[in-house]
């Protein structure tokens, strides 16, 4: 992965790797910042010139790696449309928060022969501001008072063969929600727009 960043120009494979790596760190940041898992199960990691927190829980790590690996494959085939992190209350099963990452794939890029001109440094800078925004959201998102679980949804093309262990799901929206758009970044092959929806507090 490090070798990918030092090379100038972006290929489809490299782009898929950058984006899936972003999701790995982004999801970890959400889980830490929103307090879904105990903070002591996270460890610090240096990435994008930031100190990020990554889970050390073996089951959770395994789960995230499986999803991210599959996502990378789909990103490479340009079959992904969205990735959604849904946060639900364990007791009431109510959906409290929904982080949506819209992925725009450039479907004209078919294989690795195409090399796009964009400095990895600039991409990293863009990713850094998205991750910072995720960190900063705790200041306005309502407190998750009850114990919560999370789920990852991936929107794919209709003609995709559903792999083993995967199943179809509903969109799982937050009812009565407020939305905040966050920054976006692009590798020129994949563009990721982020947004968070949360339950409106009745006042």
């Amino acid at each position: 992965m490090a070798g990918q960043l030092t090379r100038e120009g972006i290929t489809l494979k490299g782009s898929a790797e950058i984006v899936s790596e972003f999701f790995f760190f982004g999801i970890n940041s959400i889980l830490y910042q929103r307090g879904i898992y105990p903070p002591e199960t996270f460890t610090r990691a240096q990435k994008y010139g930031l100190t990020l927190l990554v889970s050390t829980d073996p089951d959770l790590k395994n789960y995230l790696n499986t999803v991210v690996e599959q996502l990378k494959d789909w990103l490479y085939k340009c079959q992904v449309q969205k990735l959604v992190v849904v946060i639900t209350s364990i007791d009431s099963n109510e959906i409290l928060e929904r982080w949506q990452f819209d992925i725009e794939c450039d479907k004209t890029v078919k294989d690795d022969s195409v090399v796009r001109e964009k400095s990895p440094k600039v991409i990293q800078e863009e990713i850094r501001s998205v991750i910072r925004q995720i960190t900063a959201t705790v200041t306005f998102l309502p407190l998750l008072e009850e114990a919560c679980a999370f789920d990852l949804l991936i929107y794919t093309d209709k003609d995709l063969q559903v792999p083993e262990k995967w199943e179809e799901s509903g969109p799982q929206f937050v009812s009565n929600s407020e939305e905040v758009r966050l920054r976006s970044f692009t590798t020129t092959i994949h563009k990721v727009n982020s947004m968070v929806a949360y339950k409106k507090i009745d006042s």
């Binding site: 307090g35 898992y37 969205k82 407190l143 114990a147 919560c148 999370f150 991936i154 995709l160 262990k165």
Partner: peptide, 28 residues
């Protein structure tokens, strides 16, 4: 938020991984 005819939503099957029993959100 999407066109039913052009996308499907997938999730990795299995139970969701919950935080350990008795864990309380540190922010709370």
């Amino acid at each position: 938020g999407f066109d039913m005819e052009e996308a499907k939503i997938l999730r990795l099957g299995g139970k969701s991984l919950n935080a350990p029993e008795g864990y309380q959100n540190n922010l709370k």
